[in-house]
């Protein structure tokens, strides 16, 4: 069983302050996290490896400026990671363009049984990479899975629709995107972590670097998206102050929570 997991990074939201009035984002602490949904995809891949044995390879989501997420994945237990770098002067790749790169990389790796990635990204809210990749490869796709299992050449997943859970299945090879919060990523192994960040030991050889240009004709990588500006979503609604007796307020709070859960 060959599993590929695609991982991206996001600026740690705890290190930024958003000033709506001035329309700016202030970065106090520039630290990056593994995308939350990608964390779940990674854990899913590692559980499949634990359960039935699998060879797990990590690929980057986008042309990342460094290979940190891949090192994190190696420390957590993936077998191999490919850091794919573009040309310094290339235009910014969007998901459409990067899908082509990933598709070429998957081919170069000799295909896979299962490609896992996050269903959404925390910063841009996009969840295109998985579905686009499935289209490009001509594989079935499952989007927004809570749980994923591979059995007898099929991948089974549980999705959530409104209040219901739905079990679906697809033939492998397939692309599955995993919801954020579905699973808790395991802690990395200390020794692997030290070795991979130091670049020593066996694990260091498991991190390779490829160039986009080696995979494909970079002229074909025209982005579809253009960045026009930046705006903020509407401010969160203010809470309401409850009034009445303690019992009434408790009742009102419970009702409100129930409402929210339904939504």
């Amino acid at each position: 069983m060959k599993v590929i997991v695609i991982l991206g990074r996001v600026l740690d939201p705890r290190g930024i302050v958003i000033n709506r009035r001035r329309g700016r984002i202030f970065v106090n602490r520039e630290e990056y996290l593994l995308q939350p949904a990608d964390r779940c995809a990674l854990e899913t891949a590692l559980r499949i490896k634990d359960g039935m044995g699998a060879d797990v390879t990590a690929l980057p989501r986008g042309p990342l400026p460094d290979d940190d997420v891949l090192r994190q994945a190696l420390a957590a237990g993936v077998d191999r990671a490919i850091y794919i770098v573009g040309r310094a002067d290339s235009p910014p790749y969007d998901d459409a363009a990067w899908t082509k790169v990933v598709a070429a990389a998957v081919d170069r790796l000799g295909g896979a049984d299962l490609v896992l990635t996050g269903a959404t990204t925390l910063d841009t809210g996009q969840g295109q990479l998985g579905p686009r990749l499935a289209e490009a490869m001509g594989w079935p796709q499952i989007v927004g899975a809570w749980t994923v299992e591979a059995v007898d050449g099929k991948v089974q997943a549980v999705l959530q629709t409104g209040e219901d859970y739905v079990a679906v299945e697809a033939d492998m090879p397939a692309v599955v995107t995993v919801l954020p919060g579905a699973l808790k990523l395991r802690y990395p192994d200390g020794v692997r972590l030290v070795d991979i960040y130091r670049g020593v030991g066996e694990i260091a050889a498991a991190l390779e670097q490829w160039n986009v240009a080696d995979l494909m004709d970079t002229e074909a990588l025209v982005p579809l998206l253009e960045r026009r500006g930046q705006d903020f979503p509407p401010e969160r609604e203010r809470g309401t102050r409850l009034a009445g007796t303690v019992e009434e307020m408790a009742q009102a709070a419970a009702d409100a929570l129930r409402q929210r859960l339904r939504r």
Partner: peptide
């Protein structure tokens, strides 16, 4: 801090 120490702190912080 070296990269391994940055990564180590991140791991421990999360733990």
């Amino acid at each position: 801090f070296s990269p391994e120490h940055v990564a180590l702190r991140r791991m421990i912080r999360e733990f």
